[in-house]
């Protein structure tokens, strides 16, 4: 068995119009910039995929990565907790023009909904957002004298993930706080595609160090020196690059 994919274009080839795609990362840390850009390349070449529902903590920053995906017009709905950043202009303009739908979810509820989706738990109760505008329409139940809100699982057709090391079986490690939503999203998608800095032979990663076991991963693609959102934005980068 070998889950290695030959290149980024192959890695994103299965994503179809209308699908729900989880994209890992918290701001720029753990964001799979190269996978997102490969998806944008496919859209510019073929007109697909479009009408995507994207799940991410944020809504992109600047004009690269998730912001560029939205700017390309490929996203019809965003499920996130914090659609603001240093430079959120792409999402903000589309949202205020009514061109993109937003489902705002508290950050811990977003994480737990994704975890539940991956764990086969259709709903759970949480104290978060009880009594607020974000609780409207959700069932409430008392436990030990306190009110809790029912929240439902969140699943996706695809997850696009950034990890640090991976082996050919899909076992993954992450770098520092780039872990964030990535291990949860690996579990919650039908097909999980991961970009890693290095693909190694099985046995090269200490089993004690594996964070995401390969059972949650369908494909790995090597991106040796991945870009960082903050670095690109400090250079005012755009994707696709504007011709000189």
């Amino acid at each position: 068995m070998d889950k290695t994919l030959p290149d980024l274009a192959t890695a994103v080839a299965g994503i179809q119009d209308g699908m729900t795609v989880m994209i890992g990362g918290f701001g720029g840390s753990g964001a799979p910039i190269e996978l997102i850009h490969a998806l944008i390349d496919r859209f510019h070449a073929t007109g697909h995929p479009r009408d995507l529902t994207v799940v991410n903590n944020n809504a992109g920053n600047g004009h690269i990565g998730l912001a560029a995906l939205i700017e390309a017009g490929m996203v019809c709905k965003l499920i996130c907790s914090f659609p603001r950043s240093v430079d959120p202009v792409v999402f903000t303009d589309r949202y205020l023009a009514g061109q993109i739908e937003l489902e705002l979810v508290p950050q811990g509820t977003l994480a737990e909904r994704i975890r539940a989706g991956g764990a086969g738990i259709p709903a759970f109760y949480t104290p978060t957002s009880y009594g607020t505008d974000l609780a409207k329409g959700k069932p409430v139940e008392m436990f030990e004298g306190r009110p809790y809100l029912q929240e439902r699982w969140l699943k996706a057709d695809y997850a696009l993930i950034k990890a640090h090391l991976g082996d050919r079986l899909g076992n993954l490690t992450y770098r520092m706080a780039a872990r964030n939503f990535n291990p949860l999203m690996c579990m919650a998608a039908t097909t999980t595609i991961v970009q890693v800095s290095r693909i190694m032979a099985p046995g090269s990663i200490d089993p004690e160090a594996v964070i995401t076991p390969g059972i949650f991963v369908q494909g790995v693609v090597q991106v040796e020196n991945p870009a960082q959102e903050e670095t690109l934005n400090r250079a005012n980068a755009r994707y696709p690059q504007v011709a000189e």
Binding site: F26, G27, G28, S29, G30, N57, S85, V86, Q107, G108, L110, A111, E112, I114, R115, Y174, R175, M176, A177, A178, R179, N180, F181, N182, P183, L184, I211, Q228, E229, E230, T231
Partner: peptide, 29 residues
């Protein structure tokens, strides 16, 4: 000296200290 994989919730760079631990978002919450 920033490492953009080492940030806080405000997306500002932070540093490691002896005893730092990392974990995923579901454990965090």
């Amino acid at each position: 000296q920033e490492d953009w994989d080492l940030i806080n919730a405000g997306k500002k760079a932070v540093t490691l200290k002896p005893g730092t631990a990392f974990f995923h978002h579901a454990d965090s919450f």
